[in-house]
Simulated assay, not measured.
Amino acid sequence: MKDWIINYLRAQQAALAAIPPEAVAELIELLRTAWRENRQIFAFGNGGSAANCSHFATDLGKGASDKLSRRFRVLSLTDNVSWLTALGNDYAYEDVFVRQLQNYAQPGDVVIGVSVSGSSPNCVKALAWAREQGCRTVALVGAKRGPMASLAEHVIVIPDTHYGRVEDAQMGILHLLCYAFMENPALASPPAPPQ
């Protein structure tokens, strides 16, 4: 058991080390632009990725927003159980995210899809719709990449297929996006006046 734990932790460290700092920096700037322009930010995923999206919305909506002169407008589309189940039941499970975006999303908003496989039909459909509507799209995926990696404007691939390791690394990325605003006062400068 000790050897298994050591090997697991070694593989986990490799997954974390594979997070590309320059790509994370681009996402931080994307969120900063969204904040400055008062855009909305949406996140979605299934299973463990759904939990990561909820965690991200909490940290960005509360922790990061507490440090800013104006709050982030962020929603995890995984959190409204009655709406999710109504959409899944009345339409199809692949519509549970896209139909929420149809109610909320506007061009220029940020849409973040999180998936280990990159192939979840509901995430693929939502990202495709968001891209068509002029939203800024982000995909966090594992080594299989899937269609999400081709659809999104910004993509970070964790080069592993192990669900636990990829989900942990993806949560690491989402934490970086939030803590960048919590721990770097320069990012919290007031938004530029409208042109």
Score class of each variant (00 low, 15 high):
115 S>A: 04
121 P>M: 14
102 Q>W: 09
57 A>T: 03
33 T>G: 15
101 L>Y: 06
147 P>D: 13
69 S>M: 12
52 N>D: 10
72 F>S: 08
18 A>Q: 04
181 F>W: 04
182 M>T: 10
123 C>W: 05
54 S>Y: 01
95 D>G: 01
147 P>K: 12
187 L>N: 00
6 I>W: 15
60 L>C: 15
170 Q>H: 13
47 G>Q: 06
171 M>E: 13
157 V>I: 08
34 A>D: 05
167 E>A: 07
148 M>Q: 06
50 A>M: 09
103 N>M: 06
150 S>A: 15
94 E>M: 10
92 A>R: 13
139 A>K: 11
11 A>G: 14
113 G>S: 08
131 R>V: 11
28 I>F: 09
82 S>C: 12
48 G>H: 00
66 D>Q: 14
126 A>S: 00
110 V>K: 01
47 G>D: 02
80 N>Q: 11
135 C>R: 01
122 N>M: 03
146 G>M: 09
91 Y>V: 15
22 E>P: 09
83 W>T: 10
81 V>T: 00
189 S>M: 11
189 S>K: 15
66 D>I: 13
27 L>P: 03
127 L>T: 05
35 W>F: 10
175 H>C: 01
166 V>I: 15
154 H>Y: 08
112 I>T: 04
125 K>D: 04
159 P>V: 06
99 R>C: 01
100 Q>Y: 05
106 Q>I: 08
67 K>C: 12
164 G>M: 08
157 V>L: 06
142 G>M: 01
41 I>K: 02
9 L>E: 03
65 S>P: 09
114 V>D: 04
61 G>I: 06
120 S>A: 12
131 R>L: 05
133 Q>E: 04
28 I>V: 15
79 D>S: 10
128 A>V: 11
174 L>T: 07
53 C>H: 00
192 A>V: 07
176 L>I: 05
66 D>N: 15
110 V>G: 02
172 G>A: 03
142 G>S: 05
191 P>Y: 01
141 V>T: 11
165 R>W: 11
159 P>F: 04
8 Y>G: 12
170 Q>A: 12
169 A>R: 08
136 R>Q: 06
14 A>K: 15
126 A>E: 00
24 V>S: 12
91 Y>Q: 13
177 L>M: 07
61 G>V: 00
